[in-house]
Amino acid sequence: MVSEEYRGAKQWSRDKQAVFTVVWISFLSAAIGTMVFFALFDPVDLSGVFDEDLDIGRDAGYAAGFFFFWVLCALASGVTAYLVRTAPKRDAKHRDQ
């Protein structure tokens, strides 16, 4: 369509849609998770739990927590998206009937 062209954006492929959606939704979920988690726990108090000598600052703690949540959420929604999209076709046919 013309307007797609002027915006310099093309229709996305199914794969691209899936990848970006998974990344984005897990990002949002991780942001919420990080917020709740670190409102309850101070990274400085937590760093001692894993290793007595580990002394990471709050900045690094927040970042580590956020990326942990992001990866975890991306894994969950990524696998879900993959399973939904690669489900046997025959099932879909039965369902339609």
Partner: peptide, 12 residues
């Protein structure tokens, strides 16, 4: 780059 594609494909 992504612009309204975000709305179309990525926005819940």
């Amino acid at each position: 780059y992504m612009r309204e594609q975000v709305c179309k494909y990525m926005c819940p």
